[in-house]
Simulated scan of single mutants.
Amino acid sequence: MTLSDRRLLLVHAHPDDETIGNGATMAKYAAEGVGVTLVTSNRGEMGEVLVPDLEHLAFERDNGLGAHREIELAEAMKALGVTDHRFLGGPGRFHDSGMSWAEDGTATAAHDVPEGAFWHADLLVASDLLVEIIREVRPHVLVTYDQFGGYGHPDHVQAHRVATYATSLAAVRSYKPELGDAWDIPKVYWSAMAKSQMAEGIRAMREGGDTTSFEGWDPDNLPWGSDDEDLDAVVDGSDFVEAKMAAMRAHATQIALDGPFFALSNNAGTQVWGKEFYRLAKGSRGPVGDSGLEEDLFAGL
């Protein structure tokens, strides 16, 4: 299989999630000619607005954040070189569900979930929308979240459920042929934050004098992430960190230039943001590299 024959589908919850977790991977594969498709579950209308001049866009005020984040996502995809990006069911089909923080530092469902929220979407209805995309794109690899959505956000959890169910349904020859010819995705990965890498980055920040970013996070006891023994693959996108940073800057309402993400970049740079990790959820593990992990999501295909 040549690079230009390979197709990668990513299923995410909100604009900016794709860049933080998989931006270097997306930019690397897009540059190599791999077909990269992003599906975003909703427009992130409930997100916090970090730009003072745009605070009026907040859900509880003018409720214009969703439309603005569409623009941010388009700019981020330009930075990453990704030309095929879509909202599940179209922009606004599903609404951001919001979230609240639990006492253990993980996210959980909000007390008041808005009407039309993705969290309350009928699983089959949402999955059918993705089945149609899967059968159109016919990806060799799908990337989404684990069953916990990475850190507990209800929309991340729902994206995992939809992606998992749609992957199964899309492979059934007799299931709704009007949605396209059946396609069995060979490999599915869950995006992962490597605890060891994140801990090293936080320590580097603190050694450099930054004690406010990730305040309260204990590098030896991070609230979420994956242990090294659970990781199956790493994509080294170190050459594409600048593209990832440009995409993060495009998500200006969500990622502060003086916030912890960019502080981490300044102190740990490519070490943290250039290497992105994955857990294999479907398919066979391919050949591994010097890292002891697969170094290509298409390994073995």
Rank of each mutant, 00 (worst) to 15 (best):
T167G: 09
T19K: 04
I134T: 08
S238F: 03
A163F: 03
L3T: 13
T270C: 05
A13I: 00
V157P: 03
S238I: 03
H56D: 14
H111R: 14
L124F: 14
F59M: 04
T40Y: 01
R69L: 04
D128L: 03
W183I: 01
A58R: 15
D227N: 15
V288G: 09
L169M: 11
V288F: 10
S291P: 09
G35Q: 13
M1P: 12
F277M: 05
E75M: 05
V234Y: 11
P186W: 01
L65M: 05
F240V: 00
D184Q: 07
A110L: 08
G44W: 05
V125R: 13
E48W: 05
T211L: 01
E45S: 05
G292T: 08
E60L: 09
D236K: 06
F277T: 05
E60F: 11
D181M: 07
A58F: 06
S4L: 09
L73A: 09
D17G: 01
M46T: 06
L54Y: 13
A192T: 06
V172W: 00
W101T: 04
G92V: 01
Y278W: 07
I134R: 00
E103W: 07
S291A: 02
V36N: 12
T164Q: 06
D220Q: 10
M26V: 04
M99K: 05
T19A: 12
D220N: 14
H153G: 04
D122M: 08
P287V: 05
V288N: 10
L222T: 05
G149P: 04
A163W: 02
V131R: 08
E200Y: 14
E115S: 10
M245Q: 13
A194R: 07
F214P: 06
D155H: 11
P223N: 08
A199R: 05
W183S: 06
G35P: 04
A110V: 02
G33K: 12
A110Q: 10
F148L: 10
L169W: 12
G283N: 12
R203N: 11
F94W: 15
V241T: 08
G64I: 01
E132W: 01
N267K: 05
F262P: 02
K78P: 00
H95L: 01
T19I: 05
I202K: 04
P219D: 12
P15G: 00
V113R: 13
A170R: 00
R86S: 01
S174A: 11
T144E: 00
S265R: 09
I255M: 06
R93M: 03
S168L: 11
G89Q: 09
G44K: 04
Y151G: 01
Y151A: 02
V39L: 14
P260E: 11
A159M: 09
A31G: 14
V234H: 10
F240A: 03
F277H: 11
F240T: 07
W119K: 04
E45C: 08
A281D: 13
M26A: 15
R138Q: 14
V49M: 08
D239K: 08
G44F: 04
G35N: 14
M99N: 04
D296T: 08
D230L: 06
K187Q: 10
A171C: 08
D128F: 02
T164V: 07
L301I: 12
